[in-house]
Design a protein around this nucleic acid. Structure first.
Lengths: 153, 153
DNA sequence: ACTGAAATCGTAGACTT
DNA sequence: AAGTCTACGATTTCAGT
């Protein structure tokens, strides 16, 4: 993980379809060298994948919400299994502080959000939920600055 | 927005570097037709961009946290401006329920999280914060299912 | 990590429905 | 307006060095 790798990671996060040729220009390396490095970054798990970012509202998902769940420990695995199966749930984290888990969900409207909440409240071990509907999103980035010195390799 | 567009959106969300040829095979269209559709999806804002997804932990960001902020309305714009400037803040939403805003942040460790929190608590209008540190992430998808009938076009 | 050739892919214009 | 065909240039890939 040297300066060149960091440049590649920044560029690929900014534009996931950038060509090897452009990356070669940015780094003063040749195209095959770029390719080798990117393959290695993938093999090391640093690059997990490439994804198109689509606009949720334009795909008829008008509601984004965060749902804090209070659940009992014995049923944590059930909760995870249910969360993985539900397409409207984009993220599921276990967290510290009030609540045991936090979900990020996308639904078409308030009706579908209500249906989803009813489902969740029926999951085994769920004692309570607290929903925060997103009114506006001012920043939504997936960019991670690779600026720290790395420990490994 | 027909069945073909939905297939394209699904495929591009799953693999942002998929070739037009592969997409042509999936949809039984020719490569130029695929290209035209993708250009239009971009022009309509449905495709916002393409991004490499990198592993935060492997880039020395060990902490993910959600910070709920209670702020006074007069200073909302200040809060947004500060959030946009801070690279550790990945998301900033205004929300309903307890708290006025929710941040998703990534930091190297608890020390840098503490520093960030100190900064945020000094922002004008911030009355209080409530931090939820992520212990484990069980689902982290950006996939949005384009399965509803669309209103526009 | 570089070179160079071969295969694959993306792009643009003209044409068809 | 949307798709196809064809041809050309760009990109990716895969040797060997």
């Amino acid at each position: 993980m040297d300066q060149t790798d960091k440049t590649l990671l920044r560029a690929l996060q900014e534009n996931g379809r950038i060509t090897y040729h452009e990356l070669a220009e940015k780094t003063d390396l040749t195209v095959p060298a770029i390719r080798d490095r990117i393959i290695k970054l993938k093999e090391r798990g640093i690059i997990r994948g490439y994804h198109a970012h689509v606009d949720a509202k334009l795909l008829n998902k008008d509601i984004t919400a965060f749902i804090m769940i209070e659940s009992v420990a014995i049923h944590y695995q059930d909760l995870i299994d249910y969360a993985l199966q539900e397409p409207a749930i984009q993220e599921c984290h276990s967290i510290t502080g009030g609540g045991s888990h936090l979900l990020k969900v996308r639904t078409k409207n308030t009706v579908s959000l209500e249906k989803l909440l009813s489902k969740i409240q029926c999951w085994p071990g769920v004692k309570g939920t607290e929903t925060h509907v997103v009114l506006s999103t001012f920043k939504d980035s997936t960019f991670i600055e690779p600026d720290e010195t790395e420990l490994e390799s």
